[in-house]
Design a protein around this nucleic acid. Structure first.
Lengths: 144, 144
DNA sequence: TATCTTTGTTTGATATATCAAGTACTATGA
DNA sequence: TCATAGTACTTGATATATCAAACAAAGATA
């Protein structure tokens, strides 16, 4: 039977966990910046930490390039980002954080860190290492 | 720093694993039934195993009721399901699997089981128990 | 019975996921 | 230098995620 099948429940525990965490993140984030999504907040943080192209960001956080293109477009529309064309390579976009983006970021960073802490409360670093190892095994198995 | 932060990597290992698994599932499923999605295949399987309302299915697999409504509508459009109104409660829909749905199901069940086996290869049942426990902890932490 | 609340489902709006196709620019080899 | 291939990104189409609002039927209550 399906519903009590351990293989079934693993994947739905994964889905459940990630959905619960995303919901927590959204709730906390919208208390400080109402018009930003969880993904957009993360992208903002990544661009702030390193100069990255859209493609590089997409690869980092496992997003499709098409999705990344639309996420960036919305962030520009909402005035969190600016886009310029790279002078050395006309295909590449340089992403810059606006004033509004910077101010949002200042408020977001502590919230994001707190969310992770909240979600991982009670898990030791060995447990987390283990969790990551098992998840990576599932990823590798799935890529064959 | 963010990218090497263990808290960061945990959540992205989770996303990576679930995305890799979904991609594997889709690839295998589309070899037998090209016009069905991973979610739709799962819904078909659940309806086959138990008589469930849309709301119950949604709760089981952590879907929003709105999403479930649309998934069901598409499955009806593609002739995998039929919907009738419950005679005892005019709000409730009774979902029935069509001939096409039944025939699809026969081909899908072994594929779905094989996908899970593939993805979990090399993980012992103790490890899986542990994995589930940690994921459930993250879920509970996130729900506060 | 008339009103109010709850329940099961749907619809609209916006964001993201995925595939396929398209655009623009760059690099490479004949 | 010209044709071809590759790279970075965009766009269209369809599916799903999420919130808010709507709707119809059922149940509860005055």
């Amino acid at each position: 039977m399906n519903l009590n099948n351990p293989s079934f429940t693993i994947f739905y525990s994964i889905e459940e966990a990630i959905k619960a965490y995303r919901k927590l993140s959204l709730r906390k984030i919208e208390t400080v910046i109402p018009d930003i999504t969880v993904d957009q907040a993360l992208v903002l943080q990544l661009i702030n930490e390193e100069k990255l192209t859209q493609t590089e960001i997409a690869d980092l956080i496992f997003k499709d390039y098409a999705s990344m293109s639309r996420i960036i477009a919305l962030m520009i529309k909402k005035d969190f980002l600016l886009k310029e064309t790279d002078k050395n390579d006309g295909r590449v976009s340089i992403l810059k954080i606006t004033k509004k983006g910077e101010s949002a970021l200042k408020q977001l960073v502590p919230i994001i860190n707190q969310n992770r802490k909240t979600a991982l409360e009670g898990l030791t670093s060995e447990e987390l290492e283990n969790l990551k190892k098992m998840l990576n095994k599932i990823t590798q198995n799935s890529k064959k």
